[in-house]
Design a protein around this nucleic acid. Structure first.
Lengths: 217, 217
DNA sequence: TCCTTCGGATAGTGCCACTATCCAAGCATG
DNA sequence: CATGCTTGGATAGTGGCACTATCCGAAGGA
């Protein structure tokens, strides 16, 4: 199909598709003449994924490029490619920190990993962007004086472990290796807003229940 | 204290504090002369909260203004003020949608609420921004062909309900009403990156375990 | 007195995700 | 073959956002 058709079927403006091509989020089409290129279903599928990552997942264009590059890099082993989504989302410009709160955060998180039985030496954990984000977020909580010690974090860690099992099952349900990689990216990122929204709704539900229960609501 | 001291103690540049004052994220200080104003510990605390919301929580300045306005609006009842954080974070510019995927999302989410025993008529749920975000996110998953039916969503809903109980306990542990409101805002927003980071780390841990377990490296 | 500091106002910066315009090379029709 | 529309690539511009740099007159301090 032509670029115009790719645009029509995906709902993405041609100008935006050209931008994505320039930025390397999409492989160039097969050149069929000096001024024409041919795109296939793979391009359409990739385009839809990229759009969802950016619009729904809130991923930046630069991060999306990292993600898709890792996901389609066949020189990496399957396990590494599955982790692609995890390794490309800072989302936080690291508000620095070498104060007491940062130290408390380090301590709380180290204790948390121990309590969860997660290996703190594992490179996938200690060196990951998510680990930095976790430290920064916990430090921010500490700076505001809110409880965020190991015991406070534990329920969140348990819940994360539980969800991860569900997530992995969904990913591994995909029949092909490439399908699993794409699923890992899509499900990791797109279930984030789902989870956060559900948490907020659960807050409303739980708060309303308690208000009703104690007769003050 | 003067604006300069407020800046020094919070680590926020004076120009940025002025900007926040202009945008209504911070109450003006007590005017002590035509060119001087006095700020107190309350301003410092509020400033730290706003900074954390924006830098760590990724909240926009406009949304932060909504949140703090609702949180300090004494004309609202306690329950409504506690919900302030829930009501001010679109984070997603609503990618439209009245297609089959949107319909499937509506159906799956309705079923989910039923299975969780949440009241779909409750205004705090059905009318909340989080509900829209949830529908949009599920629709995006459906558009990509990933499983997101009621049964698939159920584990995430259960986990959200579980976390909400923990969250509410933390909020209600605050002794004062104002403290609870601020805690609701801070903990709702700042535990989001904590939860998402932990989920990513759990992915890495779980994936590595499975890879070790089945001997494929 | 003189010099710094204060707070308020205004305009500008840098980044990001597009988006509008232009261009030359096809292709399609009479 | 002429004509006009379409295509894909290149370039520059737009709008939004979160600051940030500069200027100003008034106040305070040595």
């Amino acid at each position: 199909m032509r670029l115009a058709e790719l645009s029509e079927r995906s709902g993405v403006p041609t100008a935006t598709i050209k931008y994505y091509l320039r930025e390397g989020l999409l492989q160039p089409g097969r050149r069929v003449s000096a001024t024409q290129a041919e795109y296939d279903e793979g391009h359409l599928r990739r385009l839809r994924l990229v759009r969802a990552l950016i619009q729904v997942g809130g991923v930046t264009v630069a991060a999306a490029r990292e993600v898709v590059a890792a996901a389609e890099d066949v020189s990496l082993d399957h396990h590494t490619r599955l982790g692609a989504a995890t390794w490309a989302l800072p989302r936080v410009p690291a508000p620095a920190g070498d104060d007491a709160a940062a130290e408390a955060a380090r301590e709380a998180v180290t204790g948390l990993l121990a309590r969860l039985g997660w290996d703190p030496e594992r490179a996938e954990i200690a060196a990951s962007p998510a680990y930095r984000t976790l430290l920064d977020s916990v430090a921010a909580l500490a700076r505001l004086g809110y409880p965020c010690g190991t015991e406070t974090l534990l329920p969140y860690g348990r819940v994360a472990a539980e969800i991860a099992v569900t997530d992995l099952d969904l990913v591994l349900a995909e029949p092909t290796a490439d399908g699993q990689v794409e699923a890992a990216v899509a499900l990791t990122v797109l279930y984030e807003p789902v989870l956060l929204s559900l948490r907020r709704l659960a807050h409303a539900e739980e708060s309303a229940r308690r208000a009703e229960g104690d007769g003050t609501g």
